[in-house]
Every structure is written in structure tokens, then in C-alpha cells.
Simulated assay, not measured.
Amino acid sequence: MTDIGLPLARTRGYDLAGLARSAARTLAPPAVAFLLLIGGWELVSRSGVVSTRLLPAPSLVYATLTRSLDVLLEQAQPTFWGAVAGIAAAALLGIALGLAVSYSATLMRMVYPTIIFFQLIPKVALAPVFLLWFGTGFVANVTFSVFIAFFPVLVATITGLQAAPPSYERLCRSLMMARPRMFLTVKLPFALPHIFAGLRIGVTFAVIGVVLGEFITAQTGLGYIILFSANNFETALLLAAILLLCGVGIVLFAFFLALEAVVIRLYDSR
């Protein structure tokens, strides 16, 4: 028993050591690059080569962030929930329309070119139109967010539903498998990674859409704080708001990464 147990213990220790070395190799280069960037930025700002109003030191940005954290967190709430509502609506619309056009060639020819046409229009140019249609405030920001985040989810869904090998589909048809069962057993497993990839891209676009809407229409939100800070040359507050905005994007991106892992694990366990 001892002889059997010792190799397992050594193997586990070796695996843990290997994971630690792999994590160190993965994390060390970006960590070193980040520290060099922050250190160089601090030195340049403190040297007086660039005005602190244009490029405040990271230490000043951090001090501003901690001093104004309560206000920034309050302003981050409409931005966060606007992005959540935007990506949720974009996911529902994109996945539903992707399913519809994937199973109907006629609908694909009717709808897809129109969507491509609207996607090619610069989004900022349509912001005044959304302002006229939806007014100012939360609804306008969410609508603009959905408009930007919708397309990558749609394309990823269509691509994913076409990713199953044709031989798998021929086998299902030869077995006279019903289309709903073929979708659940063949098409959906191949489509899920693509759909979640589209959602991860879409969530970044949703945050961008909300911020663009806040630039134009809102009186609250991190986008409004960024615009207000730029107009008043409060660069430290501007960078602090951008830093918190990055945090909002990272939280939402991480949520979809975790959701993908849970959904795929649950689906594979069936």
C-alpha cells in the first residue's frame, strides 16, 4: 500500500509544482510589463517633462480614485446596469434571430443583408437619431448599447450553428432523428463555444455603447464623469473614472467566462 501511495503523492506534488511554474510563466511577463509601464509613467510625470494636468502620475490618479470612490461608484451603477441590460437584450435578439435565419434560407436572404447595411453605418453618426427617437436617459443608453452589441452575437450564433460537421447531420438524418433532438445533440454543442465568444465580444461593445450614450444624452454615469472631467481639465479624475470603467468591463467579461464554463460543464454532464 505504501509503494502504491508514494508515487501518487509525488505525482500530485509534481502536478502542483508544474501548475505553479506554468502560472508564473504566464503571469510574470504581463506583470513585469505593467510595473515597468507604471514606473515609467510615474517618473515621466514627476520629472516635469509633461504637465501634470495632461499626464498626472499614477499615484495622483490612485489618490483621486480613493478620494472620489463613493461618487464614482454611485456614477458607475447606471453604466453597469445599462451594460447589463444592453448585453442581455442583445443576447436574446442575436441568438433568437441567429436561430431563425440559420433554419430558413429565405429569411437569411431577406434579413442578413439589411443587418450588414446597418452595421456598416458609423455608430456615432446614429447617436443624434437615437436622441430624437428615445430622448435622454437610461432607455436611450441601453438602446444604443443593444444596437452596438447585437451584431457580434448574431454572427457568432450563425457561425456556431453552421459549425457541426455535415457528416454528423447526415448520420442524424439517416437515423431519422427529429430536428429538435438533432439540434440539442449535434448543433448546440458545436454552437455553444461560438455563441459565448460572441457574447464576450458583445459585452465589451455593450459597455462602449452605454458610455457613448452617456457622452451624448445622460447627466449621470461614468461616461458623463469622463466628459465632465475632460471639459474641466481634471485629468486625474478622468483617468480614475476610466480605471473604474475598465473594472466594470472586466467584471462583465469574467461573468460570461464563468457562465460559459458552467453551461458547457452542465451540458457535457447530461
Rank of each mutant, 00 (worst) to 15 (best):
M1E: 11
P7N: 09
Y14G: 09
Y14I: 06
L16T: 08
L16K: 13
R21S: 12
R21F: 13
A23F: 11
A24W: 11
R25P: 03
L27G: 06
L27H: 11
P29S: 14
P29W: 15
P30V: 14
P30F: 15
A31C: 06
A33P: 02
G40Q: 12
E42D: 11
R46P: 04
L54H: 12
P56H: 10
P56G: 04
A57M: 05
L60S: 08
V61N: 04
V61T: 07
Y62Q: 08
Y62I: 10
Y62V: 10
Y62G: 05
T66K: 11
R67H: 13
R67V: 06
L72A: 09
L72E: 07
W81E: 02
A83N: 02
V84G: 07
A85E: 08
A88K: 03
A90D: 00
A91E: 05
L93F: 14
G94L: 05
A96K: 07
L97A: 07
L97Q: 04
G98A: 07
G98H: 01
L99W: 13
V101L: 09
S102C: 07
L107I: 09
T114H: 15
T114Y: 15
I116S: 09
V124L: 15
P128N: 08
P128C: 07
L132Q: 11
W133Y: 06
G135E: 05
T136Y: 10
N141S: 08
V142A: 02
F144R: 01
S145E: 06
A149L: 09
F150C: 04
F151K: 03
L154E: 12
A156Y: 11
A156N: 10
I158L: 14
G160P: 01
A163H: 11
A163M: 08
A164P: 12
P165S: 15
P166N: 14
Y168I: 08
R170I: 09
S174K: 15
M176D: 13
M177N: 06
R181L: 14
K187E: 09
P189Q: 14
P189H: 14
H194C: 08
F196T: 03
G198L: 05
I201N: 02
A206G: 02
A206I: 04
V207T: 13
I208P: 04
G209F: 08
G209L: 07
G209T: 05
V211C: 08
I216N: 01
I216M: 06
T217G: 03
T217D: 01
Y224S: 01
Y224H: 03
I226S: 01
F228S: 10
A230I: 06
A230F: 09
A230C: 02
A236Y: 03
L238V: 02
L238C: 03
L239A: 05
A240N: 03
I242D: 10
L245S: 05
C246D: 12
V248N: 01
L252K: 00
F255P: 00
F256H: 01
L257P: 00
I264H: 03
L266P: 00
S269L: 13
R270D: 12
